[in-house]
Amino acid sequence: MTAPEGSEKMPERRQFLADLFRGAGAAAVGGLAWAGFLDGKKAYPTVLRPPGAVKEEKFLALCTKCGLCAEACPYKALVIAKPGDERPVGTPYFIMRENPCKMCRDIPCAVACPTGALDSSLMRDKDERGRDKLNINLAKIGLAVIDRETCIAYWGIQCDACYRVCPVIDKALTVERTANDRTGKHAILAPVVHSDHCTGCGACERACVTKKASIFVLPLHLALGESSDRYVRGWDEKDEQRIEDVSEETKTVTPRSEKSALEYLNKDGF
């Protein structure tokens, strides 16, 4: 009895192809499970990274989870995420309420990073003699945000705990005085954060006297909005410059936005 043509002809090749299909099938199944698991693991939008951290997406690719930044921190403020911490595992982050960034002038954490996930060159400027130097005040760990409803200073009770501990006092955090209309004779001395100077170090969050901090640091992308190209403070010359480079091309979203921003802002009678 002879086998049909081809069925026994090249058993080795057939076996190889069968193995290949099996392998590819198993790889596809394993790969999908693996990918699904990882996709759920990498999104933790509220994590506060060390000074000099590059954009989160790139940070997650570049950080090899070596922990050298945390080891370099003289205050042990940087925590390495453990499984179960609900943070991307192995990566460094701050818990500001417990141990905020102390804003070391030599920024040892960022300097220690061997892979470029923390880029100390983002915090370089010139000293008075024009020499290159590190400037921790350029750090952007996040931005302090105030809950005015629980902040006792906004109630009219005298408290300036956050203001006093702010390492960039009077720039990042100021106290604004308004009249207390309730009593008619007292002042309300309320803290206000300024995003251009706030480094997100978290000293204020640590110092806040309320049960749960009424001033707390959020990553910039959560704490800040973004103004669109279509609205301009016409009374401010500098703000006009903001839209100078805006392309005339426009993507139609509403009938109004069929026209370019410059056109409808400047020529359409606005």
Binding site: W34, A35, F37, L38, D39, K41, K42, E57, L60, A61, T64, K65, P88, V89, G90
Partner: peptide, 11 residues
């Protein structure tokens, strides 16, 4: 390459 993170290092 697909996810943009070092896949094995994460697990």
């Amino acid at each position: 390459a697909v996810l943009g993170i070092a896949a094995f290092e994460w697990i």
